[in-house]
Design a protein around this nucleic acid. Structure first.
Lengths: 207, 207
DNA sequence: CTGCAATGTACCGTGCTACTGAACAGTATG
DNA sequence: CATACTGTTCAGTAGCACGGTACATTGCAG
């Protein structure tokens, strides 16, 4: 069996607990273990059992994935320079560093993932910095959008209903419904978004 | 701490193992435990440690989530700190663990990210296990596809041209071009894929 | 039929670790 | 000073994750 260091689990538990404004004893009481055990786990000199971890995830409202997923393999940042070739030249493949991005002040950063202009569609990577404020206005436009959160936690509001999306959570809805997104958490949010424009035959004015 | 029956974990391990055509001894050897222990876990009279479960997930090419996520029947009582999930009930938001996934033996695992059946589109998360072989056949079908690699390295071949996509790299092309994907690297590949069907007015035969 | 090699399983241990309980130090009240 | 929090330390224990071995079955070769 591959040996592995599980200390990062404790670090994440501590981060989640503190961000929830919860004390060691309070968390311990809620998950049914002793405060000392929680302290030991958070300091990396102990570990939670699977049931205990589940209770932690439930009480702190984080996913098992967020607690257990091994760190490492940095995402878009790892740019190994590779030679351009046919597919890149043809505009089919686009390298991570080459995405034209649009930074909107302190707001989210949108990166277009398609080389040329696509007809009827936008394929985007979106990054929200920590604690972006809730937009004052809802938006609505034609088409339909599909999103999945890669990392962080994105707060979404669609027709007044609010939900927090964690890594792996996805969302699909008609863009004509009033919606807005923001980042209430202390960590950056990365998500992949696909926005399909109104199909021919339908007609909804763009916002 | 809330007591819970973890027998379903064993059932899923057994299902995954058998679907991979692997014997108890073989799995035990790969994850570094004894065959009897595997047997006991699968029969619900034992349990894997977190590291052992991780090894199982790796060898059987399933996610921890797929093994650990509690089965259906909610749990209205245990939803303490989660916000109202109208959006989940409405089929707009889908939780990470709820994506119906299709495991194809040692091949890639596709997870549909949309709750219901979408018209004219598929929104997918795809996971390739390390070193999946290059498919013998190219495929071509109608529509247009958009993909971005989240982690790992995916080898793509479009009309004979080959390219390796790393994290953040994206690809867009007409699905009518012959193409195939595989994983030549030693690490798992995760990618988000959007496949838009042929628009009305175009007509390309499906493969 | 008799081996023989697979399969999964039952039983009996044991060493490790998840976890406890009590004490401890630090800080902020009053 | 006392009191009430905070997180931490440490010795100890109970339980379970796990190993080793033996066993019942099935299928195949001869």
């Amino acid at each position: 069996m591959v040996e592995q260091d599980w200390g990062f689990v404790g670090e994440r538990v501590r981060a989640a607990r503190e961000s929830a404004g919860m004390t060691v004893r309070e968390l311990a009481r809620r998950i049914g273990v002793s405060p000392s055990h929680v302290s030991q786990v958070e300091r990396g000199i102990g570990a939670f059992s699977v049931p205990a971890l589940y209770a932690v995830a439930r009480e702190l409202d984080v996913s098992m994935h967020a607690l257990l997923d091994p760190p490492g393999q940095e995402t878009a940042a790892t740019l190994v320079s590779r030679p351009a070739n046919d597919l890149v030249a043809a505009g089919i493949v686009q390298r991570a560093g080459d995405h034209p991005s649009i930074v909107l002040g302190s707001g989210p950063r949108w990166s277009r993932l398609t080389a040329g202009g696509e007809e009827n569609a936008e394929f985007l990577e979106v990054v929200y910095a920590p604690r972006t404020p809730r937009p004052a206005e809802e938006i609505r436009h034609g088409g339909r959008e599909y999103g999945i959160v890669i990392s962080g936690e994105l707060t979404v509001e669609v027709e007044g209903a609010t939900e927090i999306l964690g890594p792996g959570d996805s969302i699909v809805f008609d863009s004509t419904r009033p919606h807005r997104f923001w980042n209430d958490a202390d960590s950056e949010v990365r998500a992949i978004w696909f926005v399909r424009d109104t199909l021919p035959g339908e007609s909804v004015p763009h916002a």
